[in-house]
Simulated assay, not measured.
Amino acid sequence: MNRVNFSDWQEMALKKDIEQIKKKLTSQEPVLFSLCWELVLALGSIIADHLFDTENAPEWIWFTVIALAVIPAAVILGVVVGKWICSIVSVKKGKFNVKDSVDIFDNQISYWVMLSNAYTDMLLEDINGTNSEKEFLYREGCYYNNKSMQAIYAMKSNFDKIFSMDPQKVKEDSLVDMERLFNILRVMKEQQDRLDATISEISSEGIKRQRELNEKYMDDLMKFVKDLNESNEKSRIKTFKWDEN
């Protein structure tokens, strides 16, 4: 199998970003519909003003025009306000949108890990590069790896709702398979070890600072794993081990 390089992963990540933008645009369709409807009514009133004697027009015509102008906008506004109220109530009850977290895992964390992997591979292959170039590749690889750790840590309080060891539940509720989580945790840890080992002979303030940052993110990842295993033990589910052998 041919190795997927950095540009390939960037292209795939870009496609995912485009998909997210399309979803956001789709969510604005009711507003666009309302604007188009108002534009049609405005043009219609101008045309009617030229075709009919507006001063002597029956009242029912004006009531009809006003209703057609107000009702669609009122309905759309009501739907938007209703969704907003429901979201506030859900947050107060401790609920959240599982799909959003699953999308973050699938469309962001996975790609950040692979972008970090691409930088790591470039660093390993950059035998004749300068120390500054190697530092750049190291810090960029750490940046994407740390972003992945941070996003994983943000799911700490709700991981039991996002991840599942039950294949049927993963399929029916569109959750993330727990074994996928285990795998990506190992990849992030191994990747950080590879980055540190490759740059071990280079000493600079930038690398020193990056290592300090890495420790902060790794501490959060360890806290996530600790809470994950405590929860799994209570539920009698398989716990995570860094070495699966």
Rank of each mutant, 00 (worst) to 15 (best):
V4K: 12
N5H: 09
S7A: 12
Q10T: 06
M12W: 14
E19P: 04
K23N: 12
K24L: 11
L25A: 09
S27C: 06
P30K: 01
L32N: 15
F33N: 15
S34A: 15
W37I: 02
E38P: 04
V40D: 11
V40Q: 14
L43G: 13
I46D: 10
D49K: 08
D49W: 14
H50E: 09
N56I: 04
E59L: 11
W60Q: 08
T64E: 05
I66E: 13
A73F: 08
V75R: 03
V75T: 08
G78L: 02
V79K: 11
C86N: 14
C86E: 12
S87R: 12
S87L: 07
I88S: 05
K95R: 11
K99R: 11
K99Y: 10
K99D: 12
K99I: 07
D100G: 05
V102I: 03
D103R: 07
N107S: 06
N107H: 07
N107E: 14
S110P: 09
S110A: 13
S116Y: 02
A118V: 02
A118S: 04
L123P: 01
E125S: 13
D126H: 11
D126G: 04
R139H: 07
G141R: 00
G141E: 01
S148M: 03
M149Y: 10
Q150D: 14
Y153P: 01
A154P: 08
A154F: 06
A154I: 06
M155S: 01
S157T: 11
N158V: 10
D160P: 04
K161W: 13
F163Y: 02
F163L: 00
S164C: 02
K169V: 10
K171F: 07
D173T: 04
V176G: 00
R180N: 15
L181K: 00
N183P: 08
R186D: 04
M188C: 15
M188L: 14
E190S: 10
E190A: 15
E190M: 07
Q191P: 06
R194P: 04
R194D: 15
L195K: 00
L195Y: 01
A197E: 15
S200W: 12
E201D: 13
G206N: 05
I207V: 03
E212C: 08
E212G: 05
L213W: 12
Y217N: 02
L221G: 01
M222T: 07
F224C: 00
V225S: 01
E230K: 08
N232K: 04
E233Y: 10
K238T: 06
D243M: 09
